[in-house]
Amino acid sequence: MKCRFIGLLKLTLIAFAANSTVSLARQLDVVVFDNSGAPLAEAIVSIPILANEPTQPSTAIVDQVDKMFVPFVLPVRPGVTINFPNSDNIRHQVYSFSEAKPFELPLYSNQEAPAITFDKPGLVVLGCNIHDGMRAYVLVSPYIESVVTDADGVATLSSEMDFNEVSVWYPGVSDDIREQVKVVVDAGQERIEVHLDVAKDQQERTELSPLQQRFNRRARTDG
């Protein structure tokens, strides 16, 4: 009977510890607005605490759909490899001149998905040599948590580490990830609003010239 009692006590303590761990995780809803007061989708909200553990090898995707990069913004940790599939029926040539990761992929069609590893923190601006309106942003962040706001401008942060500040980035805020908008969070707060002095940014679909259209038709035939 004594052994059975001790066993039940251990199970109770384990369950209590598990529930305590869950309850310690702090959640915070961050609502981001642009300079017109409208909810701002595709802003990146982070907990600005440096991650102590190295990033485990992982992958992400930046696709090309209807002459646009998808997603428009993408936060990743250093060491993540991004695949660049081409879901269009035309060729693209992805490049970046950003200091954090300069690169240029060869002209390629939808049969291929080149991969690039982003190993240095910083902002990487993506473009396409063929379609000037295509633009996207990869934020290689050293922080423990980074979340993209949804269509309502909301990002939900969750961490078992206590934090009293969040940082917010959006195109036009800064090209330096150390100069993100910082907002103090009070103890016990579950929701905060952040108003950025930026306008909504977006890609522009580039209409191909007759020469480019002929080139792409020939490329598809040759490929």
Rank of each mutant, 00 (worst) to 15 (best):
P78T: 10
P142H: 07
P71K: 08
N129Q: 14
T81L: 07
A136R: 01
Y95H: 09
A136D: 02
Q111V: 02
Q111D: 08
P57N: 11
R91G: 15
G153F: 08
D119M: 00
E165R: 14
V73P: 01
V138A: 00
A100R: 04
V70T: 11
V45I: 09
S141D: 12
N52G: 15
S141M: 04
L105E: 05
D119K: 02
R77M: 02
D119L: 00
E165I: 07
T117Q: 14
L139T: 02
V148R: 07
D119R: 00
Y143I: 02
F97W: 02
S109F: 10
I90T: 14
S167G: 14
T59S: 14
A155L: 01
H92V: 15
V148S: 04
P75D: 07
P71Y: 09
M134F: 06
V124E: 01
T55C: 06
N52W: 00
P106A: 11
Y170P: 09
D63P: 10
V65P: 01
M134K: 03
G133Q: 06
H131W: 15
A60G: 10
E53Y: 07
P121H: 12
I82L: 08
I116E: 03
R135V: 13
E165A: 11
S98P: 06
P114H: 05
V125A: 03
M68A: 15
D162P: 02
I90R: 12
L139S: 04
A151D: 13
P71Q: 12
N52Y: 01
E99S: 14
N110W: 08
N52Q: 08
M161K: 12
S146T: 11
P102E: 09
F84T: 09
N164Q: 12
E145Y: 00
Q93W: 12
L50Q: 04
V45T: 12
P142S: 09
E145W: 00
V62M: 13
P85M: 07
P85Q: 07
T55V: 08
N89E: 10
D152Y: 08
S146M: 06
G79P: 07
G127Y: 06
V147W: 14
V45N: 07
M134L: 05
D119T: 05
V140L: 06
H131G: 06
K101S: 14
S87C: 07
E53G: 02
I47Q: 11
V140T: 09
N83Y: 12
V147H: 12
T59Y: 13
H92S: 13
L126F: 00
C128R: 12
E104T: 13
L123Y: 09
H92W: 07
I116L: 04
R91P: 02
V80N: 03
R135I: 12
